[in-house]
Design a protein around this nucleic acid. Structure first.
Length: 284
DNA sequence: GTAGCATGGTAAG
DNA sequence: TTACCCTGCTACG
């Protein structure tokens, strides 16, 4: 589930459901028991995300830092009924009690890499080490370009490095490189400034759409299933994509087989014909 | 039923 | 480079 769009969507949802309310905070599983005990009964102010980092803000300058990792989930449910018994390993449970005719709501965090009570200074330290986030209005893409433009590392590695750029994960990495016809192994420093600008602007659009829909869709209208007369993609993420997890299948644009390899410890996918290997001026 | 893998990241070795 | 976190889906038997 979790690339940056998931966390921003979740922050909005937490703010909407719990913001301004006195909440019950628990850790049915027990691994966040100390933090939960300190926060229980206090006022939740709001939640905000930077890249894949989520911070839930409580009164008295207290924050919960959440990182979902690869398979963490945070389900927020507005219910007309009573709050159910926790199912499975619920690290953190937030409850907005029913009151004055209002219905109860709850949020369950499972499988997260991180769930910790932190201070504003600790939050700032985390934020200081991550790059600009395409989903934030105040992001400075030049900061990322400063790193990319002088790095010999592959652009496919740099896009996944949260210290360079925050919020992009394995799906957006593969898809944005396809959309800009750039090979994942191409060294960052060989990109032109205009290519970086186009990638950034595209990430802003794609990820904002991801926040709105809760899925990752990267396929242009002319390549959608209905436009091409091909079957829609069926899997657990739901979005229409060009190359992600499509190894061996036909490229939607040129028909050649999608390639796969491991880059930055993750599977990367690309079309060898649409994303030709970069050749330096000297090599040509 | 269950092995294997996954939209991530850290820490140990 | 590997282990881990310990969820949830898919593929396979």
């Amino acid at each position: 589930m979790p690339e940056g769009h998931t966390l921003h969507r979740l922050a909005d949802r937490i703010t909407e459901v719990f913001g301004g309310h006195l909440v019950r905070v628990g850790s049915p599983q027990g691994r966040f028991a100390d933090g939960a005990a300190q926060l229980d009964g206090s006022r939740l102010l709001d939640a905000d995300a930077w890249g894949k980092q989520l911070f839930i803000r409580f009164d008295a300058d207290r924050l919960v830092r959440v990182h979902l990792g690869l398979y963490g989930t945070f389900d927020v449910v507005d219910t007309e009924e009573s709050v159910p018994e926790p199912i499975g390993q619920v690290r953190l449970r937030l409850v907005r009690p029913a009151g004055r005719g209002g219905s109860p709501a709850y949020g369950d965090l499972r499988g997260a890499t991180t769930c910790a009570l932190v201070t504003p200074a600790e939050r700032d330290a985390v934020l200081a080490r991550i790059g600009p986030d395409p989903l934030r209005d105040d992001a400075e893409p030049d900061r990322a370009w400063a790193r990319i433009s002088r790095s010999s590392a592959p652009i496919g590695t740099l896009l996944m490095d949260q210290a360079v750029l925050a919020g992009v994960g394995n799906v957006y990495r593969a898809e944005v490189l396809f959309r800009h016809r750039i090979h994942p192994l191409r060294p960052g420093r060989t990109l032109r400034p205009s290519q970086w600008q186009a990638i950034w602007e595209d990430l802003v659009v794609l990820m904002e759409e991801g926040v709105a829909t809760g899925r990752i869709d990267t396929v242009r209208d002319e390549h959608l299933p209905e436009a091409m007369g091909r079957p829609p993609r069926v899997d657990d993420h739901g979005g229409e994509v060009y190359v992600y997890r499509r190894a061996g299948q036909a490229c939607h644009v040129c028909g050649s087989a999608v390639r796969a390899d491991v880059l930055a410890a993750r599977n990367v996918f690309w079309c060898a014909r649409c994303q030709p290997v970069f050749r330096s001026r000297a090599a040509r």
